[in-house]
Lab assay of single mutants.
Amino acid sequence: QWKVGDKCSAIWSEDGCIYPATIASIDFKRETCVVVYTGYGNREEQNLSDLLSPICE
C-alpha cells in the first residue's frame, strides 16, 4: 500500500512518458493521490492504481 512520501513512478499526462515522482498526498476515498515529479516540481493527480514502482536511476 502506498503512503505519503513514497517514491514511485508515474505517467505524466502531457506526454505519456514515465517519470520518477514522490507521493505528496493521498485521498483513500477516491483512490487518488497527488504526485510531485522529481526534478521538475510539477504536481499532478493520479489514480493510486496507476502508480508504478520507482525507477532505478
Rank of each mutant, 00 (worst) to 15 (best):
I55G: 12
K29W: 12
T32K: 07
F28W: 15
R30D: 11
L48V: 06
L52R: 07
D27M: 05
G39C: 12
G39K: 08
R30T: 12
F28K: 11
E45G: 05
K3Q: 14
I23D: 06
Q1W: 09
A24G: 06
D27H: 01
A10L: 09
S13H: 08
R30G: 10
Y19R: 02
V36D: 02
C8R: 00
G39R: 08
Y40W: 13
I11A: 06
R43S: 14
I11K: 08
W2L: 14
V36C: 00
S25K: 03
D27S: 00
V36N: 06
R43Q: 14
I55T: 09
D27L: 05
C56K: 08
E31Q: 15
G39T: 08
V35W: 07
V4Q: 09
G41D: 06
S49E: 09
G5Y: 04
I26M: 01
G16H: 02
R43A: 13
V35A: 01
P54F: 09
I23T: 03
G5A: 04
I18G: 01
L48T: 02
G41N: 10
E14N: 07
V34D: 03
E57W: 13
L48M: 02
S49A: 13
S9I: 10
I55D: 13
W2S: 15
E14T: 07
R30N: 13
S53C: 10
C33P: 00
C8G: 00
D15V: 04
Y19A: 01
E57M: 12
Y19S: 04
E57C: 13
G41M: 10
P20D: 12
Y19V: 02
V36R: 00
I23Y: 00
C56A: 14
G41F: 04
D15P: 01
D6N: 00
I18V: 11
W12A: 03
Y19E: 04
T38N: 07
C33K: 00
S49K: 14
Q46V: 10
D6Y: 06
S13E: 05
P20W: 11
D6R: 00
Q1Y: 11
P20L: 12
D50R: 02
S13M: 09
P54S: 06
C8P: 00
R43N: 07
V34R: 01
K29V: 14
A10I: 09
S13D: 07
C17K: 15
D50Y: 07
L51P: 06
G41K: 03
V36S: 01
A24R: 05
D27F: 06
Y37C: 10
K29Q: 13
Y37K: 01
Y40M: 15
Q1A: 10
D15R: 08
V35L: 06
D27G: 00
T38S: 08
G16A: 04
A24F: 14
D50H: 04
A24C: 06
Y40C: 14
D27Q: 00
T22H: 03
D27P: 00
F28A: 12
A10D: 05
G5V: 03
V35R: 00
E14Y: 15
I23A: 03
T32E: 05
Y40H: 14
D15T: 10
I18A: 03
D27C: 07
N47G: 01
V36Q: 09
D27Y: 00
A21C: 15
D27R: 01
D6G: 00
R30F: 11
S53F: 10
C17Y: 03
E57L: 11
Q46E: 06
D50N: 05
L48S: 02
A24H: 13
E45L: 09
R30Y: 11
V36G: 01
A10E: 07
L48W: 07
I11D: 04
I11G: 03
Y40G: 07
T38H: 10
I23P: 04
G16Y: 08
Q46I: 10
A21K: 03
E45H: 03
A10F: 06
K3A: 13
C56Q: 14
A24W: 11
S49V: 11
Q1R: 14
P54I: 10
T32P: 06
K29G: 10
Y19D: 04
V36I: 14
I23H: 00
E31F: 11
K29A: 13
K7D: 12
C8K: 00
C8V: 15
R43Y: 14
V4F: 01
R43M: 14
T22Y: 10
Y40I: 12
N42A: 13
C17I: 02
V34E: 10
T22P: 02
C33R: 00
A21V: 08
N47P: 07
W12L: 07
V36Y: 05
V34G: 01
A10V: 13
Y19P: 07
V35K: 01
V35N: 02
L52Q: 01
Q46K: 15
G5E: 06
A21W: 06
Y40F: 14
E14D: 03
R30P: 09
V4N: 10
N47K: 14
V36P: 02
S25V: 10
E31S: 11
S9T: 08
P54L: 09
